[in-house]
Every structure is written in structure tokens, then in C-alpha cells.
């Protein structure tokens, strides 16, 4: 599924300073039963967000109206565990376009990039600065500039650059995906497959 182009995102952010946020928390397995990619945002962080009776847990950040925005800021090792792309779908469907952390699990990072969510890895120090800025002002804005590969805290002007390979960057800024690329090289793949021993 091709997705919207990503260039510069200026937004407030939702802080979640918890380490090892695994994909079972992002979307519990019992909500993976759909055969279409629809409505996963409703169950984003389901068991942290809602009580068993469906009432919201008031102390959870997504239920706190002072925090909002298109950027989710998580603790170290965000997205560990299951490979379920549903976790990335839920984050996207809820309205996030960028996740910031000091460390991402590999599969989650790939899944995010494949559906048009930008994972931005920052230093632990810069992550701390972001959390501090949002704590001081829940409406603090972050600017994620993909072409320049920088993330900036608007209020303080503090900025850090982040890594992304030029292939993925090109894809995201243009809204292409890997399937488009692979379809364009099918002849090479056929030739390769003909030599395969399996």
C-alpha cells in the first residue's frame, strides 16, 4: 500500500517515557483477527488505555486531553517482540506519523517505514530533552525534517540529526514503497531464481 509523502512534520507530541514498549502492548493479540486493515487505532494500547469494562484509564497518556499530536515519543527499545505489522497500523490509524525513541526494535522499525511512519532514533540525552520540554509545556512542538534529517524542539531550538538510508528517505519523501521497487526488477529476480538450488 503506497502511503502519503513525508517531508516536514511540525507537531505537538505525546510522551510515553516507558522502556521496552512491546507490540503486545501496542496492540494485544486478541485484536489481530481482522482480515482488512481497518480500525486498529481504536485498540491502540488497549490494555493500558482501557479497563476491562471498557472505561478509560485516566492516568494513561492517551486519555489525557492535554497531550495530543502526530508524534509519539517512547522510551528505549520501542516496538520489541512480535512482528505484527498491526502495531504500526494501529499507531498510524490513531493519527501518529512519527515515533521518536532512543532505540527501536528492528522489525517494528521496518514495519513502520513500510507503511509511512517515520521512526526517528535520537540519543538518550536528546530523548530526555524532549521529555523535559513536553513536561514543561504539553503544547511544545517538535519539527521533524526528513529532507534535512533533523529533529528540533521548537521552544529551545535544540536540534539533533537522525539516520535514515537514502533509499528509504527517497521512498518516504515520494510516497513509494518497496513493492514498487521490486516489481520494477522482476526480470533480475527471475534470472536469479533460475539458479537457486531450492
Amino acid at each position: 500500500m503506497a502511503y502519503d509523502k513525508f517531508t516536514v512534520l511540525k507537531s505537538t507530541a505525546v510522551p510515553m517515557p516507558i522502556e521496552n514498549v512491546d507490540t503486545d502492548q501496542i496492540i494485544p493479540a486478541r485484536f489481530l483477527k481482522a482480515t482488512e486493515r481497518k480500525g486498529f487505532g481504536d485498540n491502540l494500547f488497549r490494555d493500558w488505555r482501557y479497563n476491562a469494562d471498557g472505561s478509560p484509564k485516566n492516568d494513561f497518556v492517551l486519555n489525557n486531553p492535554i497531550y495530543s499530536g502526530k508524534i509519539l515519543v517512547g522510551g528505549k527499545n520501542f516496538g520489541s517482540g512480535s512482528s505484527r505489522e498491526h502495531a504500526a497500523w494501529a499507531i498510524y490509524d490513531y493519527g501518529f506519523r512519527c515515533v521518536v525513541s532512543s532505540f527501536f526494535a528492528d522489525i517494528f522499525k521496518n514495519n513502520a517505514l513500510n507503511i509511512g511512519i517515520l521512526p526517528v532514533q535520537v540519543s538518550p540525552e536528546f530523548l530526555h530533552k524532549i521529555f523535559t520540554a513536553i513536561e514543561a509545556d504539553p503544547k511544545a512542538e517538535l519539527v521533524v525534517d526528513l529532507p534535512a534529517q533533523t529533529i528540533t524542539i521548537s521552544a529551545t531550538g535544540e536540534s539533533e540529526s537522525f539516520d535514515i538510508n537514502s533509499y528509504k528517505k527517497h521512498n518516504m519523501t515520494n510516497g513509494y514503497d518497496d513493492i514498487d521497487y521490486l516489481q520494477a526488477m522482476k526480470e533480475d529476480i527471475k534470472t536469479f531464481a533460475a539458479k537457486s538450488m531450492y
Partner: peptide, 19 residues
């Protein structure tokens, strides 16, 4: 190794993934 659903679609359609 494990992959996401977009990558499942890549393998089905081209027998390759980009890693």
C-alpha cells in the same frame, strides 16, 4: 527471520524482500 505484513506481500509478489 520474522517479517511484517507489507513484507509478506513483497515475498508473495516478488519472492524477495528488502533488508
Amino acid at each position: 527471520f520474522g517479517i511484517g505484513t507489507s513484507e509478506v506481500e513483497m515475498v508473495l509478489s516478488s519472492q524477495c524482500i528488502m533488508q
